[in-house]
């Protein structure tokens, strides 16, 4: 029972080896072919740049991380509540589910411009954009999960006299946790990308950092920004996966046993 591990060497090994070899090949190729730094910087150039901009980078990165986490949390919570509402009140579902799709059909760059027109250049338009991007995958995944409860279990719960509320809290909600997490993972990756995008309207954040670097042909600095974005995405993804494992231990363990 104590052998639950978040991180296993055997699983992490192959990608690390592949990544390391790619970096070595990249470094060698850039050096051998004499590619200019502003076209394609070598890994060492990027590392050097990283060290030199570290303090400023940290400021931008924490701004991005802050808005991403806030938008992701608020958007996911909204998605969760909306899914529960649509599930529990049938006429709401009939009326609103088709409209839900509409919110996703307006391109992100149009939205951010509209929000800036309506709400100015503060944090609000970016937050709204992130929420709008995050709530949809969570709501759809959750709604699927809530309606997929095992009919045998639903019948049992009804037969022993469970109320609609008990059915929801005791069966449907816990049964859709794995759906919730797949929604959250999609929302997390959307949220990072969208936060970067929306930061073109901000004065701080990795989006701004990259935009400025790119305008000034500081390609190494652009790559530093990209690496940081990847790190943030991975961090978010890792946190969600860890939370998932903690919440559905019953499942994780049964899979481990089946795999043995």
């Amino acid at each position: 029972m104590g052998n639950r591990r978040w991180f296993s060497l055997r699983k992490a090994g192959p990608p690390v080896v592949v990544l390391a070899s790619l970096i070595v090949i990249w470094q060698a190729a850039v050096r051998l072919m004499g590619v200019e730094e502003y076209i394609l910087p070598s890994p060492l150039d990027i590392a050097r740049e990283f060290v030199s901009v570290a303090p400023r980078l940290f400021e931008h990165a924490s701004a991005t991380l802050g808005i991403t986490l806030l938008g992701f949390a608020a958007g996911s919570a909204a998605g969760l509540l909306l899914a529960a509402l649509l599930h529990l009140v049938p006429w709401v579902k009939a009326g609103f589910y088709p409209l839900l799709v509409l919110t996703q059909n307006v391109p992100v760059f149009v939205l951010i411009n509209l929000f800036v027109i309506w709400f100015g250049f503060g944090m609000l338009p970016r937050l709204l954009l992130l929420m709008l991007v995050c709530f949809f995958p969570v709501a759809v995944a959750m709604l699927t999960g809530l309606t997929q409860a095992d009919p045998k279990l639903v019948n049992y719960m009804k037969m022993i006299g469970a109320t609609k509320g008990q059915l929801f809290w005791r069966l449907e909600l816990p049964g859709s946790i794995s759906y919730l997490f797949s929604g959250l993972k999609i929302a997390a990756s959307y949220s990072v990308i969208s936060a970067i995008y929306a930061e073109s309207t901000a004065d701080k954040g990795l989006g701004k950092f990259i935009q400025l670097a790119s305008n000034g042909w500081q390609t190494s600095r652009v790559f530093v920004g990209i690496v940081t974005i990847i790190a943030i995405s991975l961090l978010l993804f890792g946190l969600i996966t860890a939370a998932e494992r903690m919440m559905i231990r019953w499942r994780v363990r049964s899979e481990e046993e089946a795999g043995r």
Partner: peptide, 17 residues
């Protein structure tokens, strides 16, 4: 009207979590 009997279904129907 529900909840008036104690019931054991044909399949064990235990909640897996």
């Amino acid at each position: 009207e529900r909840g008036l009997i104690s019931y054991m279904p044909q399949h064990a129907s235990l909640l897996p979590w």
